[in-house]
Write a protein that binds this DNA or RNA. Structure first.
Lengths: 366, 366
DNA sequence: ACGTTTTACTTAATCGTTTCAGAAAGAGTA
DNA sequence: TACTCTTTCTGAAACGATTAAGTAAAACGT
């Protein structure tokens, strides 16, 4: 209360050593005042703090401390897209929430590392990150950022990615879940399907993705989900090649709408749309409404993710549930247990399941 | 491609100096290989990298680098609640999105610092944060975390808080906006209002908050909004003391519902509810439905924040718009300009305005 | 052939802590 | 008194880099 100096001095911040010499004690003692109160008398400790305050010493420098202690007290989180997109997508927000829950419990900070945009300087950002480990969330396998993080050789957890060299990972059975979704439509009697996909690889061109592009997809969830759809179709003795897959440039309702508009204006018109995310399904609803088609009478729509909004859509969206928050929690826990030196289980598959709601029905006989 | 060693060696990571001596060059040269390619021959640089790879050197240690360079390449973000809550609330997510946009553009990481839960160890987390500055988001003024951050004396930006000692801040005119909201209801003819408030101070007890507690509120937005409501009421020559203010323990729909149920079962029953956030308004809708009251015929509801979901509610929610994302962007920009050494403008008020939608109407004559 | 730039490195001084292994002095014990 | 503990503090070596200033040799211009 009532700081005397006006702070205008702008002189270099005092250091621990200076505080020590001001008090004519050893630096070790000052350090102990902050880190091990039991190592010095309460009286001296108080004097240390007071002198520190007077000299404008704000406590041990975190960088120096991290260097010396060899730990950072934070984990790095890598996200495919630009960070700002991550917050716009409910799915990644829930995932981050999960990580936060875990790291918070361990007193660790979460360092979100800028992705996307300027591909150039990115690896540098990774190299500069003062962290004890990484969570890599849904990066394309060959993403330079992911590579840079892996190169740091820190404890790491992969999410929604195939294991790489024994690095623990968490994910869901995308393929199985997608198969269930497609099988559900086929069972209802749909013969003309369409797929609204998000990016299959970096810099998606947008538009119909042929089989080759599908199998070359670098994003594992995309690839697996398409594979799941395909196998359900083929299990029903139908050809996957007849099912158009539209690749959006971005995972957002606006893109889903464009995709759906395109697919619905093809002949034969699909009676059902499989969307790789609920965000895209929202766009599909919009397109349907725009074209005067009603869901589910004229068009069935299936999403993926089961974001909270899905159940509140009109009609409620049939989709694939997956535990996003839990996924983050597990990723965090796996990383933390590695930090503790426990070599942990290598791979974890969380449950996912089809949730049938009001957006799917048998096709009308027209 | 084809790493030979199986990584099991677990021997101490090589250092820059070791790489240097392996190559019989000076450490400076190895450092330059990473930081200033133009300072050595391309050929030697290549050899440095190759040797580094062979020796398992993964590049300059970020902590050491931060220490020497005296910058961290990241900004710290402090949030009132537990981090995991931040992600559950659309308002803070949008705000974080804004910060991300700004920091990302500057190539800075965002370090989210664990708040809430274990009040004990928190200040330590702050002291350990390797960051160049802080954004303090809506902390109570006396929050120990905020204090700890301020104590670091780094460039800082305050959000939704009154300025403290010339520290730049960004916010909105909460009081004015709240006044407009209340005035709107009064103009419509409502005479019995109720207020659903979120926490006024740390560890909210829940329940009716008397005038004293209202004015002692440590969260500035809460205090200002209540003040705004009060002044509109008093401008209409009515007594603010007659308006019950229910303080929720948490800013979540479930709590808003409890509050609204309580308020609506009092006599005289309020014909309109002023909610300090849209999240709480969602709860108010639920309570109304539960009690067989329809909005806006039997009950008018006004929110605060204008989250995207507000416009999609049924009926669409009358609320106060404020630019959450923009707020984050400006906070980020203000911080970044401080980091650049530009002593920036001291305080910034972003626009907010009442958005009248379908949830407000004149009271029925009953 | 001589002075000047350039290129390619090196030297050595930090950056600000933490922590291990004592040491001096007082307290307790036999 | 001689001894072992405690308590309280000190010395000094890391931790792993960056960078300003300097040097020796090569390249250049005339």
């Amino acid at each position: 209360m009532g700081v005397k100096s006006d702070g205008r001095e702008a002189r270099r911040r005092a250091t621990l050593k200076e505080v020590a010499s001001e008090l004519s004690v050893s630096p070790a003692t000052v350090s102990n005042a902050y880190n091990r109160p039991d190592q010095l008398s309460a009286e001296l400790r108080e004097r240390v703090f007071e002198t520190a305050r007077r000299m404008g010493y704000t406590g041990p420098d975190p960088a120096a401390r991290s260097l010396r202690r060899r730990r950072a007290g934070a984990v790095g989180v890598l996200y495919t897209d630009r960070l700002s997109y991550a917050f716009a997508d409910p799915v990644s927000v829930m995932f981050l929430e999960g990580i936060a829950t875990a790291t918070e419990g361990a007193g660790l900070g979460m360092l979100l590392i800028p992705g996307g945009a300027l591909r150039e300087r990115d690896p540098e950002a990774i190299g500069n990150a003062v962290v004890d480990g990484f969570v890599i969330y849904c990066m394309a396998e060959n993403d330079p950022l992911a590579t840079a993080a892996l190169d740091r050789q820190l404890p790491t957890v992969l999410v929604d990615q195939p294991e790489i060299g024994g690095i623990p990972s968490v994910g869901i059975d995308d393929e199985g879940a997608a198969r269930a979704a497609a099988a559900h439509l086929i069972e209802l009697g749909h013969r003309h399907l369409g797929v609204v996909s998000f990016e299959l690889a970096l810099n998606a061109p947008g538009g119909i993705a042929d089989r080759r592009r599908q199998s070359e997809a670098t994003y594992r969830p995309s690839r697996s989900r398409l594979k799941g759809y395909a196998s359900a179709v083929e299990d029903a003795d139908r050809s996957w090649d007849e099912v158009p897959v539209y690749e959006c440039t971005e995972n957002a309702p606006s893109q889903g709408r464009i995709a759906a508009e395109y697919l619905l204006s093809r002949e034969p018109r699909p009676t059902a749309l499989l969307c790789l995310s609920d965000q895209l399904a929202v766009g599909a609803y919009e397109a349907a409404r725009e074209m005067g088609l009603s869901v589910p009478e004229d068009l069935s729509v299936v999403g993926f993710d089961d974001i909270p909004a899905a159940a509140r859509m009109d009609p409620p969206l049939t989709t694939v549930y997956q535990p996003h928050v839990e996924k983050g929690v597990r990723a965090g826990e796996l990383l933390i247990s590695q930090l503790r030196g426990e070599e942990s289980s290598v791979s974890e598959l969380l449950p996912a399941r089809l949730v049938v709601r009001g957006s799917t029905a048998p096709p009308s006989k027209s």
